[in-house]
Amino acid sequence: ETKSLTLVLHRDSGSLGFNIIGGRPSVDNHDGSSSEGIFVSKIVDSGPAAKEGGLQIHDRIIEVNGRDLSRATHDQAVEAFKTAKEPIVVQVLRR
């Protein structure tokens, strides 16, 4: 079962304390579909994302501050987090 969660993150020394993997390839599949998503791959101990109620590894990131990342490329997702103003509201899907 997958549930949708909304989390609020604040940077600590400029970092949110997690890494992402995935992202849509720069070239779409011929039918326009994509199974890619942006997923949390690593969480830094005691970083902002590790706090209670924070992110978990394998969370799929859907949205950052209202910006849809469900079909974003990896670079677009990285840029969305880099430029996001605080508080950073992150919507994820968690299995």
Rank of each mutant, 00 (worst) to 15 (best):
L55G: 00
P25M: 11
P87G: 01
P25L: 09
Q91K: 15
V92E: 01
R71Q: 13
D45S: 11
I43N: 02
I61Q: 00
L9G: 03
R24H: 12
G23I: 11
H10Y: 14
V92F: 02
F18R: 01
I43F: 04
D75C: 07
S41M: 02
R94K: 02
I21A: 15
S46T: 15
V27H: 14
R94L: 00
T6H: 06
D75Y: 07
R67A: 12
S46K: 14
R60E: 08
A84M: 02
F18E: 00
L55A: 01
P25G: 13
S4D: 04
S4L: 14
D45T: 10
L7M: 12
H10Q: 15
A49P: 08
R71A: 08
G37L: 01
D75T: 11
S35T: 13
T73W: 02
L93P: 01
G23E: 09
I20F: 13
S26M: 10
L7T: 05
D75A: 14
L16S: 14
S33Q: 10
D28V: 12
I62C: 06
E63R: 11
L93T: 08
G47R: 07
E36L: 06
S34V: 11
S34W: 11
L9S: 01
V8I: 14
S33I: 13
R24G: 11
S15V: 07
G47C: 12
H58S: 09
L5H: 07
E63W: 06
A84R: 01
H74N: 04
G14M: 07
L7V: 15
E36P: 09
L7F: 14
E86D: 13
G53K: 09
S33R: 12
H30N: 10
R67T: 14
S13Y: 09
V8H: 15
D31S: 11
I62F: 03
G32H: 14
A50P: 08
S41L: 02
D45Y: 06
S34I: 10
R24Q: 12
F18D: 03
D75N: 13
S13V: 06
T83I: 10
K3P: 06
A49W: 06
K51C: 11
V89A: 06
K51F: 08
G14E: 06
S13E: 12
E86S: 08
G53C: 09
I38T: 03
A50I: 08
S46N: 13
P87R: 02
H58G: 14
E86R: 04
L55H: 00
E36I: 08
V44T: 12
D45L: 07
G66C: 02
S70G: 05
G32S: 13
T6L: 07
G22I: 07
T73H: 05
A50L: 06
D68G: 03
V27A: 12
S70M: 09
S13H: 12
G14A: 07
H10M: 12
K3M: 12
K85N: 12
V92P: 02
